[in-house]
Simulated assay, not measured.
Amino acid sequence: MLAAGDLLTTDGQIEWRGLVLGAGTRYRWVKLEGWNDLPPARGGNTPHPSRHGTYLGRLLGDDRTITVELLITGPLDVFREAVAAVRAATAWTEAPDEDPLVVRLHDQTHMVMARCVRRAIPTDRHYALGLTRAAIQWVASDPRLLRLPAETREVSLQAPPAGGMRFPLVFPLRVGAGGSGGEATLVTTGNAPAWPLYHLRGPVPGPVIDLGGSILAFDPGFVVPAGQTLVIDTRHQAVTIDGTDLSRADRLWTRQWAPIPPGTSTRVRFFSAAGSAGYSPDARLTVTWHHTDL
Results as ranks from 00 to 15, higher is better:
His48Phe: 05
His48Cys: 06
Pro49Ile: 03
Leu56Gln: 10
Leu56Asn: 02
Leu56Trp: 06
Leu56Tyr: 10
Gly57Lys: 07
Gly57Pro: 07
Arg58Met: 11
Leu60Cys: 10
Gly61Ser: 06
Arg64Phe: 02
Thr65Trp: 01
Thr65Tyr: 04
Thr67His: 00
Thr67Val: 09
Thr67Ala: 09
Glu69Tyr: 08
Leu71Tyr: 06
Ile72Trp: 02
Ile72Ser: 03
Thr73Gln: 04
Gly74Val: 10
Pro75Trp: 12
Pro75Met: 11
Leu76Thr: 05
Asp77Leu: 07
Phe79Arg: 01
Phe79Ala: 07
Arg80Ile: 05
Val83Glu: 07
Val83Tyr: 09
Ala84Gly: 13
Ala85Met: 06
Val86Arg: 01
Val86Pro: 03
Val86Cys: 12
Ala88Leu: 15
Ala88Tyr: 02
Ala89Asp: 03
Thr90Trp: 15
Ala91Gln: 10
Ala91Phe: 02
Thr93Asp: 12
Thr93Asn: 08
Glu94Pro: 10
Ala95Asn: 15
Glu98Asn: 02
Asp99Val: 13
Asp99Ala: 15
Leu101Pro: 04
Leu101Lys: 01
Leu101Ser: 05
Leu101His: 02
Val103Gly: 02
Arg104Phe: 01
Arg104Gln: 07
Leu105Met: 06
His106Ala: 05
Asp107Cys: 09
Gln108Ala: 09
Thr109Lys: 04
Val112Thr: 13
Ala114Arg: 01
Arg115Met: 04
Cys116Phe: 06
Cys116Leu: 07
Ala120Gln: 11
Ala120Tyr: 05
Ala120Val: 14
Ile121Met: 02
Asp124Tyr: 03
Asp124Asn: 13
His126Lys: 11
His126Thr: 12
His126Ala: 09
Tyr127Met: 04
Tyr127Asp: 05
Ala128Asn: 06
Leu129Ile: 12
Leu131Asn: 09
Arg133Met: 04
Ala135Asn: 01
Ile136Met: 13
Gln137Ala: 13
Trp138Lys: 08
Val139Pro: 00
Val139Gln: 02
Ser141Gly: 10
Ser141Gln: 11
Asp142Trp: 09
Arg144Gln: 13
Arg147Tyr: 01
